[in-house]
Design a protein around this nucleic acid. Structure first.
Length: 628
DNA sequence: GTAGCGCGCGCC
DNA sequence: AAAGGGCGCGCGCTAC
């Protein structure tokens, strides 16, 4: 077990840290309480005075803020210009703790009942398809589950009389009403914090879980902050890309001229004058009618056939994708005031990777990244961790041979130099195959060589696959566990072991077992890599705030980033193993150094002295397109 | 008319 | 060149 020093940069807890619980009391007021002295609230305030109360306490004590959900409380604070250093997000933390194999023994005692009012984690609810849906479901969740009446012990919170502040004139009634819609009472929040901390303390690896919860909660803060700051977006550059690729913006209801021209060409070549290229069924029929034997209309399959219709068809599909995913309507819907503001969903996937809701922020195609442009006087510090997942695997497995081969910037080149495979391409395919569970093709053929060179790493992922095949949960380095397979999956497995099981039953069971095994194999690597990234970002966030505190008065202000971030370097984008910091130009070097130091710090937090390196590809650029 | 699903494809 | 993991989203289509 690795000893992990408490790290105030990431925000893992230390003894003596002050915690402040945020929760509801009577008449829609909000209480801030020290959980050790719950009978004497630090403050009880009207919603309109909440941000001011937080600002004061934050400045004086910089406590860890404990609340049900960051997404519920933090946006209002940011709007009021009140960032906080640390928090404990009970919803995200509960989602981890109530599933982790590390807390299994503690949970088995039955003394740790998850309260019914605590919403399920974002990966357990299904991601809403639009930001609007998310808002609607969040609102209904709160109104149905969070009514004060639902809490028997609500009245035990002492009302200390007059509210700590008065409503400013013109206070937003809608905002106040949404606070009053019902939140967990402060006493219930404090009780849930106690339950969660007890689970951590009684777990198999408390220091790892403490770090994970701190990093996950920091991620929640960062997700809310990045939404407020927004990704700097140059509409004119984006429009120029669209015009270059698609031609002038068409009238509503019309296709761009360039797509029409390509469609005409395809129809002629196929001898199908009326085929609708946007209809998979229609297109497939037309292709076959023209003698092109394909089973799908996927690009990789089309490319295998040498007919004159294929090239313009592939070109059409490329443009159709650009138009529908990131065309003019996307710009109109998602870019305002020179910023792209997606909703980030920290912890939104089973492995702990983030999701986004609306705008497709995690799928920004390379050809529109040129529209990501720093404000005047500002710059972008873009960094990604090179081959993060195999490096994390090397560290997790304590595989010295693999760590040795990964030394240096290019892990794949390192494999060639170590004589494991012949070419860099082979190295890449072999590594991906090992982590994803490839069994066939080139990749499947190369994996055994990897297994010989790095038996420790390989046996770690093989074991994760075997556990998954048997229906068991697997767990990341810091303690996030995989969901269990569905009841349907179990039924298929059970059927195969009955005496009268047929060969078909057995084949089905084997196949679905392997499918789940590939998921769990990948889960431990992808999930642990996500933990590295969270630690990286959380550490960086702290360093950026320190740099921001020293920004010179003549620094140009990025108005569109809002009062909290307009003067200070801040994170504006996160994509699994890649970050973008929007930084005042004169801070670029310092920011770049902070990005580097944070990456090395994340490596030490997760792997201690084990010699695995995490080199970054880092660039200071004006446009995202110039990086990488 | 809407909901849900499969396809295809963008990203890691 | 294709195939293993994780996603979100827009489209056409079918079922209701």
């Amino acid at each position: 077990m690795v000893r992990r020093p408490a790290d105030t940069v990431v925000g893992a807890p230390e003894n003596g840290d002050m915690q402040v619980v945020v929760g509801a009391v009577e008449q829609g007021r909000i209480a801030l309480i020290d959980p050790d002295r719950a009978d004497e609230p630090l403050a009880v305030v009207e919603p309109a005075a909440f941000a001011e109360a937080v600002r004061e306490l934050e400045a004086r004590e910089h406590p860890r803020w404990v609340w049900t959900e960051t997404r519920r409380w933090y946006p209002r604070l940011l709007e009021a210009g009140v960032p906080v250093e640390r928090c404990h997000d009970l919803r995200l933390s509960g989602a981890i703790l109530d599933r982790s194999t590390s807390t299994e023994a503690a949970r088995a005692t039955g003394r740790h009942q998850r309260p019914s009012w605590l919403p399920p984690g974002p990966a357990d609810t299904g991601v809403a398809s639009t930001a609007a849906d998310a808002a609607v479901s969040a609102a209904s969740l709160h109104s149905t589950l969070f009514d004060l009446d639902d809490f028997a012990d609500a009245e035990s919170v002492v009302d200390i009389g007059e509210p700590g502040g008065s409503t400013p004139p013109g206070g937003d009634q809608a905002t106040d009403a949404s606070f009053r819609a019902g939140d967990a009472p402060a006493t219930a929040v404090a009780a849930e914090l106690a339950r969660q901390l007890a689970l951590v303390a009684g777990s198999a690896d408390p220091s790892a879980l403490r770090l994970l919860l701190a990093a996950e909660s920091a991620g929640a803060l960062i997700g809310a902050e990045m939404h407020v700051a927004g990704l700097p977006w140059d509409r004119a550059v984006h429009e120029a890309v669209l015009e270059q690729e698609l031609g002038p913006r068409p009238s509503p209801g019309w296709k761009p001229a360039r797509m029409e021209a390509l469609a005409l060409q395809v129809r002629e070549e196929l001898g199908a004058a009326s085929v609708n290229l946007d209809s998979q069924v229609d297109l497939l029929r037309a292709l076959r009618g023209a003698g092109i034997q394909v089973d799908s209309t996927a690009r990789w399959e089309l490319r295998e056939h040498d007919y004159p219709a294929i090239e313009p068809l592939i070109a059409y599909k490329r443009l159709a994708r650009l138009l529908s995913a990131n065309g003019w309507s996307w710009l109109d819907e998602w870019v305002a005031d020179g910023r792209f503001r997606p909703e980030y969903v920290p912890g939104g996937t089973a492995t702990g990777r983030w999701a986004t809701s609306g705008g497709g922020a995690l799928q920004l195609p390379k050809n529109v990244r040129s529209a990501v442009v720093a404000d005047p006087g500002w710059t972008l510090v873009v960094a990604d961790a090179a081959q993060l997942e195999p490096r994390v695997l090397a560290g997790m497995a304590r595989d010295h041979a693999m760590a040795e081969a990964s030394r240096g910037r290019d892990f794949y080149r390192g494999l060639v130099d170590a004589g494991v495979v012949g070419t860099r391409d082979e190295a890449k395919v072999a590594i991906l195959g090992a982590m994803y569970g490839a069994t066939t093709g080139e990749s499947g053929r190369l994996v055994p060589r990897l297994a010989r060179a790095f038996p420790l790493a390989m046996s770690l992922v093989d074991r994760a696959a075997r556990d998954g095949e048997r229906g068991m949960a697997v767990t990341t380095l810091l303690g996030r566990s995989s969901p269990l397979p569905s009841a349907g999956w179990r039924a298929v497995q059970a059927r195969a072991s009955e005496p009268d099981a047929t060969a078909v039953d057995e084949r089905r069971a084997r196949s679905s077992a392997r499918d789940w095994g590939r998921f769990t194999r990948n889960f431990v690597v992808q999930g642990s890599a996500a933990e590295w990234s969270l630690c990286w970002m959380a550490a960086l966030r702290g360093r950026l705030a320190a740099i921001g505190g020293r920004v010179a008065p003549q620094t140009p202000i990025a108005e569109a980033s809002g009062p909290v971030f307009g003067r200070s370097p801040h994170l504006v984008y996160f994509l699994h193993d890649e970050i973008i910091v929007h930084a005042p130009r004169e801070t670029a070097d310092e920011v770049a150094a902070a990005v580097e130091a944070s990456a090395q710090g994340a490596g030490r937090l997760l792997f201690g002295d084990f010699p695995v390196e995490f080199p970054l590809d880092l660039a200071v650029v004006d446009s995202y397109a110039s990086a990488g």
